[in-house]
Amino acid sequence: MIIAITALLCCQLIGEVVVRALGLPLPGPVAGMGLMFAYLVIHGRGLPEEERVPKKIGLVADALLRNLSLLFIPAAVGIVQYFGLLARYGWTIAISIVVSTTAAMLVTVLIFRVGARWQTHYRRHHPAHAAADEAQS
């Protein structure tokens, strides 16, 4: 278990260093996620499906992600600092967050579905291209 936590923290640490050194517009942990992903791709090559993710890393990652809600609680309690401001602009802010989040979610899911349908259609009608795409990827 310690080895898995160390692996996650090492990825985060390297991610932070790289992002800061290169001035990338990304948080360190997101770069660390890319690094962990790259490691898994290299590690998993040629292994059978169930051995591709090292067992200990898989267990710790699943435990963390199962309790992801817990990790947001400290930041969410930060709302206590802004009750005054929220009382003043509460309704307008609430309306804008509600409408904008709904719109973003709606647009995203609809475009995703249209894109997926268009892609299925294309592959069915152009099997040669689709096969070439597959071979490339």
């Binding site: 923290l9 660390g32 996620m33 962990m36 990652a61 990790l71 609680i73």
Partner: peptide, 25 residues
């Protein structure tokens, strides 16, 4: 409050890295 809660907050970093695992699966 945050002086105590930060230990939980800190885990957001490794949890973000851990998102690579379901992504890879």
């Amino acid at each position: 409050f945050f002086d105590g809660a930060q230990f939980v907050h800190f885990l957001l970093g490794p949890a973000t890295v851990a998102l690579a695992i379901p992504l890879y699966r």
